[in-house]
Simulated assay, not measured.
Amino acid sequence: MRISTLSESECKVVLANHRVAHLACTNNWRPYVVAIHYVFADDVIYAFSLPGKKIEWMRYNPLVCLMVEEKQQGRAWKSVVVDGLYEELRDGIGRKHDEREHAWSLLGQNANWWEPGALKPETTLPSDQLPPVFFRILVKEISGRQARE
């Protein structure tokens, strides 16, 4: 087995070619890791979730980490880790609203993009349902490794 470092551009190719990652956040020295669907575009990671533990924790501490892995033939693999900054894309007027719509349009290009986070979001919600949270992760650092036979 030979393990080597991926270049930044190789890491970005891995991110762009996948849709599921593991997102890590922390609160009061406690880690939390969860699978999310995402899209990598414009050197930014876009995702969505219903309100809950990960959203609360990322609001409290916006420093997050995202890991994408790619199993290849035999024992070969690639792994990419992103250190980033959580930024919520709130609904409303202005730049954040436009970015939220952009995230929605990018995510919507993939089948079942709302899973595993929730049921498919609708443009109008029942009055008792909390709205989905669209967010992005601004990439601060990216690294990756690969193993080949």
Results as ranks from 00 to 15, higher is better:
Arg2Pro: 04
Thr5Met: 08
Ser7Thr: 13
Cys11Asn: 15
Lys12Tyr: 15
Lys12Ser: 15
Lys12Ala: 09
Lys12Trp: 14
Val14Gln: 01
Val14Ile: 14
Arg19Leu: 06
His22Pro: 05
Thr26Gln: 02
Asn28Cys: 02
Asn28Met: 04
Pro31Thr: 11
Pro31Phe: 12
Val34Trp: 10
Val34Glu: 08
His37Leu: 01
Phe40Pro: 03
Ala41Tyr: 15
Ala41Phe: 15
Asp42Gly: 08
Asp42Arg: 12
Asp43Ile: 03
Asp43Ala: 05
Tyr46Thr: 03
Ala47Glu: 13
Leu50Lys: 15
Gly52His: 07
Ile55Cys: 04
Ile55Glu: 04
Ile55Ser: 04
Glu56Asp: 15
Trp57His: 05
Trp57Lys: 06
Met58Val: 01
Tyr60Gly: 14
Pro62Val: 15
Pro62Arg: 08
Cys65Ser: 15
Leu66Gly: 11
Met67Arg: 13
Glu69Val: 03
Glu70Trp: 05
Trp77Pro: 01
Val80Lys: 00
Val81Leu: 12
Val82His: 14
Val82Asn: 14
Asp83Ile: 02
Glu87Lys: 07
Glu88Asp: 05
Leu89Pro: 00
Arg90Gln: 00
Ile93Val: 07
Lys96Met: 14
His97Tyr: 11
Asp98Arg: 03
Arg100Ser: 06
Glu101Thr: 12
Glu101Ser: 14
His102Val: 01
Ala103Phe: 07
Ala103Tyr: 09
Trp104Cys: 09
Leu106Ser: 10
Gly108Leu: 08
Ala111Arg: 09
Ala111Cys: 07
Trp113Met: 07
Trp114Ile: 00
Glu115Val: 12
Gly117Pro: 00
Ala118Asp: 14
Ala118Glu: 12
Leu119Arg: 11
Leu119Tyr: 03
Leu119Lys: 08
Glu122Asn: 11
Thr123Leu: 12
Thr124Tyr: 05
Leu125Ile: 05
Leu125Met: 08
Leu125Ser: 10
Pro126Cys: 03
Ser127Cys: 05
Ser127Leu: 04
Asp128Leu: 10
Gln129Ala: 10
Leu130Asn: 04
Pro131Arg: 09
Val133Gln: 08
Val133His: 08
Val133Leu: 02
Phe134Trp: 03
Phe134Thr: 01
Ile137Val: 06
Ile137Trp: 05
Leu138Met: 06
Leu138Gln: 04
Leu138Glu: 03
Val139His: 11
Val139Lys: 12
Val139Ile: 14
Glu141Asn: 09
Ile142Val: 11
Gly144Val: 00
Arg145Glu: 00
Gln146Trp: 08
Ala147Asp: 01
Glu149Val: 13
